[in-house]
């Protein structure tokens, strides 16, 4: 019943995708943060977080995501969210978090955005 912390990372050519699993609370948010910090140390600063396997996000998880957003911003990187479940998406909307981060319906759309909009910026 109580999920083990689990965050998967997949590195692609010019970006990386992070897949948090299960319940995204404060501690799992920190794991995402750590995973992304590793990626950025390797020079990957375009990151997609795919929430397809994240059933529930709480506000401590949101706080961790905001820390991550700040960290990525400081590195002039790009952070995108995708595959958010309806209730989670609603939560980000009502908290105005969706104004601060790019949110896409699916991973393909997020990837396309990174390729088209941010590749030229490089």
């Amino acid at each position: 019943m109580i999920e083990k912390p689990e965050v998967e990372t997949v590195e692609r050519e010019d970006h990386a995708v992070v897949y948090p699993h299960g319940y995204l609370n404060g501690s799992k948010g920190e794991q995402i943060d750590l995973a992304c910090a590793d990626l950025m140390r390797k020079g990957v600063n375009r990151i997609i977080i795919n929430f397809d396997y994240a059933e529930t996000i709480n506000t401590t998880g949101v706080a961790s995501l905001l820390s991550l957003l700040e960290r990525v911003g400081r590195r002039k990187g790009v952070l995108c969210f995708c595959n958010l479940m309806s209730a989670n998406r609603q939560m980000l909307d009502v908290l105005d978090v969706s104004r601060a981060v790019l949110i896409f319906d699916d991973e393909e759309e997020a990837r396309r955005h990174l390729t088209e909009r941010h590749a030229s910026a490089d």
């Binding site: 506000t59 706080a63 961790s64 905001l66 820390s67 957003l69 700040e70 908290l95 105005d96 601060a100």
Partner: peptide, 11 residues
Amino acid sequence: IEEKIHGSSKR
């Protein structure tokens, strides 16, 4: 959101 992103407390 504007204050939280750059503030010390995100919660």
